[in-house]
Structure formats: C-alpha cells, structure tokens
Design a protein around this nucleic acid. Sequence first.
DNA 1: ACCCAGGGTCGTC
DNA 2: GACGACCCTGGG
Length: 294
Amino acid sequence: MEGQKILKEQKYEIIDQESFELKDIFDCGQCFRWNEQEDGSYTGVFKGNVLNVKKVDNKIIFKGLVNGDIKDVVYEYFDLEKNYTEIKSKLAKVDKYMQTSVEYGNGIRILNQDLIETILSFIISANNNIPRIKGIIERLSEKYGNKIIWNKRSYYTFPTLEKLKNVTVQDYRDLGAGFRDKRLFETVQMLLNNEIDVNKLYLEKDTSKVKDELLRLPGVGPKVADCILLFSDLKRLDVFPIDVWVRRVMNELYLKNPDETKVNKKEIEKIAFKKFGNLEGIAQQYLFYWKREA
DNA sequence: ACCCAGGGTCGTC
DNA sequence: GACGACCCTGGG
C-alpha cells in the first residue's frame, strides 16, 4: 500500500479567492507540518505528498510531488468545495464577537488531514507547545517515514501504522515525546490490531458515537478527540474542542466567571451549541485563532 | 537561577 | 467529579 505510489511532479492553479490565506490556514493550529518559505509560500508534507502553495498576483499556485491527480488532491485536502463565504456570513450574524473573529481569521479553511496522522499528532499535542509538537512529529517522520527528495531537499512522509509496528515506548521517548510515549505506543498497537475499526468511523453518522470510539484510544481525551473529528478527514463540524485558549475566550465573552479555571466545560459546550449550532467547530477555530494571535 | 505554561490525559481519591 | 503528576522546552 505504501511505497508503491507513484509521485509525479505536478502543478495546479486556481484564481485567488476569499477564504484562502496561507498564514490563516497553516498557522491556525490545525496542522503541524507546514512551514513558511523565504518567499512567503508554504511547503508541507501530507498523505504522502510534498506540496508548495504560493500566492502570485491573483492566483494560488500548488506544485509538488503528488500521488494521483493534483487537482483532486488539492480539492480534497483544502476542502475547496466548502462554501466558507456562506459559513462566515452565518457566524458573523451571531454577535459582534464572532463578527470580529471571523474578520480576523478571514482566510481560514479547515483541512482534511490523514486520520492516523491527526490522531497521533494530537496525542502528542497534549499539555505541549507548538514548537515542540512540531519537532517531535518531524523527528518521528524523519526516522520512520518515507524520504522524498524534491528540489534537492529531503522531506519525510508521516509514517504509516505498519512502519510504526516495531517502534517501542523507549523509541518514542528518545524522540522527545516525553510521557506521551506510552500513549503513542498503545494507540498504534490498538490501531494495528484493528481494535478500532477505522473504516467504520467514516460511515457512522452520529458524531458522538465516533467520538466514543476515539476515546478508547490511550492519550485521546475529550479535547483531542474533538480535534481529530474536526481536523482529520472525518471532518465533523459539530464538535467544540475546549483548550486553555478557547476556555479563556469563551469565559471572557460569554460566561464571565471571575475564576477562569473553574469554568465548567458543559457550560461552554451548551452555549457554543446554542450560539453556533452545527457550525460550532469552525466557530471554535476562528475564536481560537483570534484569541491566540491577537 | 528559578518559575511557569504549553491546543490534556490519566490514575487516584 | 476534583486534584496532582507528568516529559520537556522556551521565555519571563
């Protein structure tokens, strides 16, 4: 299944559009493997591809080493079918805070990332900071992923489960994963043993049932499960990942509890659903990005 | 030098 | 349900 794919140098262009800003997409916290280049473009590795995305004049240019037709790959990964203009206008009508945060994160799109990569990446993210998370994932990929050379530079795909089969707890520790080592190991083993039927997750319509399945994985708690549901190609928008930033902003805007650490999660979830409905996942991302950057 | 926080989860009480 | 512990790293 892996290693057999044929990577082809390809290029694809679309007209520049609203809701597609490189910084907003790649720095909004949903992904860890995209890096800004000297020319302002971004290069990343995903689903076995190496891709560079650049804005020139009124065009968005995608080029890289890609499996299959680059147009299909780009449409799927960047979710280009989704109408963000409509989503944003709905959210902006909720209140002035949402209007501000949607304007701030105007160019955000939520990606369709590989499920396994998203699961392991967000297990790593627990009680961790972004530079370190990126480092751990990069070293994991360098050591166990496939090497791809493009424009004389080396890139490494995120390792498949098969490649991680014999990786030990100590190996994860040596990569700098810290106490998450055991969680990574056990989750990988559970997935390899099909203790969770990944294919079924895609077919199940009830998001809460999918979440319950994900919660069986070590290292996956409510927050990480929501991130997986939202940022992977499971693509469920009816979740609301609550981390320190979101707790902070939701408390400031709506709950106004003098002691932020005492804010009840259920309370946040309730108000989030009431205000944003089935768009709460995207609303969360605008709020998170706005609060963390500004 | 020291302390703190970072896209939380887990075990224990 | 609450509470502390937990690897490690960068910044104050």
